[in-house]
Nucleic acid binder design. Structure first.
Lengths: 117, 117
DNA sequence: CCTAAGCATTGACAGACGTGAAATCAATAG
DNA sequence: CTATTGATTTCACGTCTGTCAATGCTTAGG
């Protein structure tokens, strides 16, 4: 996971024509790339992407017990995916009595969304 | 990678109050989720995200020999990342003589971009 | 032909990932 | 307190991933 981007000078060419004229520069900073890749990685699983989709469309807090039957997965596995989304900062959670409610933190997706547009 | 989303009926509740009233529905189809997760997964590495960024900003075909020195990685590793991007349909490549040129396929990012907005 | 350059592929390895079963934690009901 | 229910964590397993070294392939130049 090296993200140095040190812009080392082009390797010397032996004598032939250069492979391409213009030198290419990176446009995103390593820190940005790291943040956005973290978000993208968390969304890089169909289950998690659908979890985020359900939570976003619902515009409120959703109980885990509502999410589990949507997937053909064990409840601990769904919990695991929710944890990954929490660790990525994409969702937040809250306990109310016996139940746990999850909700999207929209600002987490903004940077990636802006970059993609 | 189960993406069944079969909307199985809620499990029976023993007698107490239900955990939450409204039934939550998935908004993206499994096939969409699979496609977008594939794209997101490919972008889920800082090196690949920066590769895409460079290619996008450059708005043209970029030689691999330009990309390799941007990263503190071996040439085969960069080639591996480019291959993953190619397999995800995010970039295309073309050989011209000794050199290989890569370019972004913008339509590959559209669906994910739209979903994120 | 032979050599060299640019890029891709293979092999190997450590670490991360997705999944389920089982155990554990938290909170409510009796 | 005890039992029960919802949710998280732990453990185990096979698979995938990122990386490099070494090798192979393709093209250009002698």
């Amino acid at each position: 996971m090296s993200t140095a981007l040190e812009l080392t000078p082009k390797q010397k060419r032996p004598a032939g024509e250069p492979c391409c004229e213009p030198l290419v520069y990176p446009a995103v900073r390593p820190a940005e790339a790291e943040r956005m890749a973290r978000i993208a990685k968390a969304l890089g699983d169909p289950v998690r992407l659908q979890l985020v989709d359900v939570l976003r469309k619902h515009a409120g807090k959703v109980c885990v017990c509502e999410l589990v039957p949507l997937f053909d997965l064990s409840q601990p596995t769904v919990s695991h995916h929710l944890k990954r989304l929490r660790e990525a900062g994409i969702v937040g959670s809250e306990r109310q009595g016996l139940w746990a409610y999850y909700y999207v933190l929209p600002e987490a997706l903004e940077e990636l969304s802006a970059w993609l547009s």
